[in-house]
Amino acid sequence: MVNESVGFIFISASLINNFVFSTFLGICPFLGVSGKVETAVRMGAAVSFVMLISSLCAFGIHAALDYINAPYLQLISYIVVIASTVQLVEMIIKKFSPALFQALGIFLPLITTNCAILGLALFQTNRGYNFSQSLAFALGAGAGFTFALLLMSSIREHLELSTTPDVVKGAALTLIVAGILSMAFMGFAGLGGSH
């Protein structure tokens, strides 16, 4: 599937195969920081940025590992790159916006263990995307993740004000809402046409 167009990859990663609702990547931050719209959007932006950088790095690493013929180092080198990118983002945010740094709290370093990012790097390698395709894939996945967080946090802000039975309070309710959203996202499958 190397000849997919850049536009199709973007739409596919952001809507049809949305990382959160159809491939189940990045569920932890999705459940954890989707309480408030503002934090959710910023979290989405931070994750998108890390995705973009790690996707570019993963592309380079894959080529290098191919060259020295050591595929078994793939996973280890990807995770090291992601961890260092997260560290970088953390320093930037701390310098330029201490308030945001406070708001994101523990979830900022936890971006390292966000499976959406490692998943993105692995998927693009498995599918053999070229440079521009990888770029579109990373942008699409980031946009999709931010969109999912935005939707979820808006719904949860409303739920907070409405009365719900005691039994469903907390994670159970969030998961059921996520299930309904996931069903709604299945509707985008039609966009794929004959692919």
Binding site: F21, T23, F24, G179, I180, S182, M183, M186
Partner: peptide, 8 residues
Amino acid sequence: ILPGGAFF
């Protein structure tokens, strides 16, 4: 077996 079911 679809994604929605997992959440439910």
